[in-house]
Computed example of a mutant assay.
Amino acid sequence: MSRSPTRPARTGRQHGHGHRHFVGTYGLLTLTVLLFLLFCVLLPDTFPTLDNVSSILSGQSIPAILALGVTIPVASGKFDLSIGYALGLAHVMVLFLIVEKGWPWPLACLTVVAGGALVGAVNGAIVEFARIDAFIATLGTGSMMYAVTGWVTDGSRIVPGPEGLPAAFTGLYDARFLGLPAPAFYVLGLVVVLWVVLERLPFGRYLYVIGSNPRAAEIVGIPTHRYCVYAFACSGTVAGFAGVLLAAQQQIGNPSVGLDYLLPAFVGALLGSTAIRPGRANAVGTLVAVTVLAVGLAGIGQLGAQFWATPLFNGATLLLAVGLAGYSARRRLRTDAAGTAGDGAPGTGAGTGSGTGTTL
């Protein structure tokens, strides 16, 4: 008899928790749909068209790929600030090898992607074994990459000759499949790969545990240093691939172009950690975040916003993303702790709770 009065209250709490869970998981996706419908109403002649959708998919593919690359070290609790510089160096090196050295474009692309993986591994080694904070280490290595970019280009642009670049190389970006730009399918393919790696394989689970509680990860026997180096190497590989696509898109080597992609990449990765799997960086959430950013930027651009609206939008969204990501992580940990206490098994929840969220 003493338990019956508490059942409605418990049911109400469960209902409230379910509502908050839905909003936290799918709120950003819902916002994307609402934004798209809003701009369709405000811009009925230009926004809901196949050309506009193709333009959004094509124009935001490289930021999306770079954001997915950022997501990997973020899952381990680390931040790779060199990824924008790595993008700039990769796209310059591809054109340098093709235009200046006469390399076959497939060999140049593979070399650059492998070089990105090597640079990422060096970043990870500096962070893990030299014990330098990831912010400082990657900012320093990024500055060195920018110096190498300037040295390779001598501070000027790399411009192909009259014969231009191989059509197969530029087709990496210009090709279409099923009526949509090919880069959109690269993004989807990378999302699927990262989803499998992060959500279904031990590698991803280890990264999440390390990002949530490195000390606990070491206690249970996870080689934290090695897996963090792997995370940075994967991030560098993705940056190298994004650099190849950027070279195929622009077809001119610009030594300063990579810096423009750094902020959008972090906005996408951090904002994505508030969706689908709130409190932890995840590939599908990053895709949703990049989509809402792309729709928002395209809409305000077509409404006639000034050039400074884009950095203002990105900066404000980054602040919001960091705040929401931290809140989601703390709420997830509190929910896990409360659930463990409610089940009457306080000794079994710490490991589970620490392994499911990334504290930002």
Rank of each mutant, 00 (worst) to 15 (best):
G339Y: 00
A283Q: 07
G124T: 04
T32M: 14
S4G: 04
S55H: 14
V127S: 02
F36K: 01
A108Q: 07
L37I: 12
T138A: 05
F313N: 01
R331P: 00
G140M: 06
T11D: 14
G299P: 00
S328P: 01
I56N: 00
W103L: 15
Y208V: 09
T141R: 08
L270Y: 15
V148G: 06
A329G: 07
A114P: 03
V187G: 08
A168W: 11
T356Q: 13
R331N: 11
S235L: 00
F313I: 05
S82P: 02
A167V: 10
G357A: 14
A231S: 15
S256Y: 12
F313T: 14
G344P: 02
F169H: 05
W195Q: 00
G211L: 04
R10F: 10
G88I: 03
E128C: 11
V94I: 13
D174G: 06
F96C: 05
T30D: 06
W195P: 01
R176H: 11
L43A: 08
P166L: 05
A316R: 07
P73D: 10
L190E: 00
I219R: 10
L29G: 14
P104Y: 07
G88D: 06
H19Q: 14
H15R: 11
S273R: 09
G211F: 03
A90S: 15
Y261T: 07
R200F: 13
G304N: 07
L245Q: 05
E218A: 12
I222G: 01
N123A: 06
G155D: 10
G240P: 00
L110Y: 03
I219L: 15
L180V: 04
D260M: 06
A248F: 06
P5N: 05
L66Q: 09
A147N: 01
R331Y: 11
G349S: 09
V74S: 11
G357E: 02
A247Y: 02
A9L: 13
S54K: 15
R334S: 13
G179K: 10
R200E: 13
A75H: 10
A64S: 15
P106F: 06
G150S: 06
G347W: 11
F177C: 04
Y186L: 12
R226V: 11
D80V: 13
H15V: 15
G24Q: 13
A233W: 06
L245M: 09
A275E: 02
T237V: 11
P162A: 12
A125F: 14
Q14R: 15
L31T: 10
L319E: 00
F79N: 03
Y227K: 14
V267T: 11
R330M: 08
W151Q: 09
K78A: 12
V196G: 10
A121Q: 03
G16Y: 02
T11N: 12
R3T: 14
G323C: 11
V70E: 12
L207W: 03
R176W: 09
V70T: 12
V257I: 14
G115N: 00
